[in-house]
Design a protein around this nucleic acid. Structure first.
Lengths: 208, 208
DNA sequence: CTTAGTTCTAAGCAACCGCTTAGTATGTCG
DNA sequence: CGACATACTAAGCGGTTGCTTAGAACTAAG
């Protein structure tokens, strides 16, 4: 039917349960997310998506306007979720806030690797109009991390030769987890979050 | 004709002058590299590649067996060049060696962003046989960075809770430059190399 | 029962894909 | 000059693509 590990399917089915209805639409979107993450958007056919969802090729077009519409829904929900992961951290101390933010953001890119790969690698496959929507969300994500760095420097907790450059590097480090992470590897998403929180603090530490 | 900036074309034409002959084969490969980097392998048509090279669709098959053969040549030469950039640094001190290696590797991913994007994002589009060839080169790249970290820890220059994890993170940081770098941005490849060398040393520094 | 609405499938259409074939222009050697 | 090799193009072939159409199966209201 789905030819996915039970866990792989169940994770997104639970995560998207409230946001994507009805059930058939969610099943199709999960099938599309896994296909796009595995092979890339352009290498995936609508027949492949339908087969993964256990339905006929024409069933795709009952709940979605086009293949690109499927991509946009995945990208939009994915960006919103990753932004929510960032902004959920509210610690007053910049060091703690940075550590917890990086841990959560890096962890998300491992745990939701399927979504994250579509979010990070298929921006160019979106229509100009849809790209503009997610670009706005990406701007908010970058601004949020820049703000933590700025707060830390102002508070005297951080020291860096290039505030925006280092903020970009911290973000880049977390995002690239989606590229190399494998669920069957020895590091858990939790492990990666812990290591990366330490690395981010080192990148901004006062003594070198 | 090529519809590329003169500089964009000239950079690869010069870099590949000795490795790829005759001229028409190199012109076709440069056209393919830019198309793959811009739109992705599967979104690129052989007609598109031929048009960028200013030739007919059938001309692709005079110098290359298939579209995948073009991808393999770009990926193979690209991996070999990036490995060469790494191994060219020979400093005896681990700190200096790490700084210079990271500076050169990060800089390469910015300067040769076109090649780097194909190298890093189209691994899954290679045939299993061709993938095995570049996978061996990738193993060498990772081993090389791990070795520098190990040497630095043994010499007492570095301190880290996870040697291999941090080596992977340093590598990941450099590789992801190919994703976000834009030639028209404010940071030059040189700037990025300098910043990233500092960040790598911080990630491995003894005092946190 | 009829009627209307929703969700699905079988079949297929026009466009496009990677790649091949047949033939042309150019150059080289004797 | 003719014989042959190389580098290229025009045309097109079989297969696949995203998506549409026509209709079946089911539910629910009147």
């Amino acid at each position: 039917m789905t030819s996915l590990g039970e866990g792989e399917y169940a994770l997104l089915d639970q995560s998207w349960h409230d946001a994507i209805t009805p059930d058939a639409a969610r099943r199709m979107l999960i099938a599309a997310a896994h296909a796009f993450a595995d092979k890339g958007y352009h290498a995936t056919t609508t027949r492949d998506i339908a087969a993964r969802a256990g339905m006929s090729p024409a069933a795709v077009y009952i709940h979605y306007r086009s293949k690109e519409d499927l991509l946009f829904q995945i990208s939009k929900v994915g960006h919103e979720r990753s932004l929510k992961v960032l902004t959920a951290v509210q610690d007053p101390d910049p060091r703690d806030r940075m550590a917890k933010t990086v841990a959560a953001f890096a962890r998300w890119h491992a745990e939701f690797r399927t979504t994250a790969r579509v979010v990070q690698y298929e921006l160019g496959s979106l229509s100009p109009e849809h790209h503009a929507v997610v670009a706005e969300l990406r701007r908010k994500i970058e601004t949020h991390v820049r703000q933590i760095v700025e707060d830390g420097v102002k508070a005297g907790s951080f020291e860096t030769p290039d505030q925006n450059g280092t903020a970009l590097a911290v973000l880049s480090l977390c995002i690239d987890v989606a590229r190399w992470y494998r669920p069957d590897g020895k590091r858990t998403p939790e492990d990666i979050g812990t290591l990366y929180a330490d690395l981010a603090l080192r990148m901004l530490s006062k003594s070198v």
